[in-house]
């Protein structure tokens, strides 16, 4: 049985992953969080033993760690886990800047341990179908993508998402990376240039970070792509948000909405709501991570993939600040 430790549970995805790991037959051995109160309440809620310090958890014969701390603490935790020989599943974005993001990839490479960036959207059957269609040539030459990853401001769940030091930014750091990764994966390329605009009109009274953003990416061969990363669903929106994209090729167009498989519900305590019935893409991602740990191989989504997507988000923030497109920095 694969033995897993949680390093940080600040990111709300930890709440889902713990169930996914157990469903896949892994043992969740322990949790450490720099906030001892949070560690205790999370550990009690999910029945996971709490470790007061990182070393004591790493000493518990772990095969792998899941790093769900605040983004700013990812690098230090990954370095310690990798040095102790643990495989790493790191929440996105990898880091808050170029340097700490690169440190994460370098540490795992140096230690020879598998590193996976948590991009579950890659495992969406709808996204996979689009990849298959592109690979088969059925969409002809691809011309453009248009993507949306809009959501409720995640401070509804965790306040640090809007802390510029801990998160590196707001909506742009949170919600560019999934689609940036999908676009780069579908095209097998990195952008040549990143342009972005943003604002803080939604929730300007509560947070100091950008809450809306639009990104325009230029890929090789004239392919262009856009991302809407806004935290502009109202706080009483029936779900966290959504993710979707359209692809335009010479052979036609495709629309992908990973969230559309859901029931519509009226009444039942909320005037309106959705009940999803599609596959759990977090589970598919965790299954792949555990397979990679068992086989000691590179996961289907790599650390470098996370580095590329994080670089897109950082370049977008830079573009918003300067008002000009940012050429792709070599990573």
């Amino acid at each position: 049985m694969v033995r897993i430790g949680f390093l940080g549970v600040a990111h709300l995805h930890a709440d889902a992953y713990v169930g996914n790991l157990r469903a896949a037959g892994a043992e969740v051995v322990g949790v450490h969080d720099r906030d001892p109160v949070r560690a205790r309440s999370w550990g009690a809620r999910f029945g996971v033993p709490v470790h007061e310090d990182v070393d004591s958890l790493l000493a518990a014969s772990l095969d792998a760690v899941v790093v769900c701390s605040e983004t700013a603490h990812h690098a230090a935790l990954v370095e310690r886990a990798a040095a102790s020989g643990c495989a790493v599943l790191c929440e996105k974005p990898l880091g808050v800047g170029a340097a700490d993001s690169a440190r994460i990839v370098a540490a795992c490479h140096r230690a020879g341990v598998p590193l996976m960036t948590a991009f579950p959207v890659r495992f969406s059957p709808a996204v996979r179908s689009l990849r298959a269609l592109l690979d088969s040539g059925g969409l002809g030459a691809l011309r453009a993508f248009s993507g949306t990853n809009q959501s409720v401001m995640p401070t509804r769940e965790r306040a640090w998402f809007a802390d510029p030091v801990l998160a590196g930014g707001g909506a742009m750091m949170d919600h560019i990376v999934h689609l940036a990764d999908v676009f780069c994966w579908l095209l097998d390329a990195v952008p040549e240039q990143v342009y972005a605009v943003g604002n803080r009109i939604v929730h300007s009274d509560v947070v100091p970070v950008e809450t809306s953003g639009l990104v325009l990416l230029d890929f090789p061969g004239g392919v262009f792509a856009s991302i809407d990363c806004s935290w502009n669903r109202p706080l009483d929106y029936p779900t966290w948000g959504g993710i979707g994209l359209s692809a335009v090729g010479d052979g036609g167009t495709v629309e992908v909405d990973a969230m559309r498989q859901r029931l519509t519900r009226f009444g039942g305590g909320q005037s309106f709501g959705w009940t999803p019935w599609g596959v759990d893409i977090n589970q598919l991602m965790i299954d792949e991570f555990l397979d990679a740990v068992r086989e000691q191989r590179e996961p289907a989504v790599t650390g470098r993939d996370g580095l590329v997507a994080t670089t897109v988000a950082l370049a977008a923030l830079e573009s918003v600040a300067s008002g000009a497109p940012v050429p792709w920095p070599d990573v």
């Binding site: 943003g198 604002n199 639009l214 856009s226 809407d228």
Partner: peptide
């Protein structure tokens, strides 16, 4: 106004 638009 600070608003941004995405037109396709």
């Amino acid at each position: 106004s600070g608003a941004i638009s995405h037109i396709e």
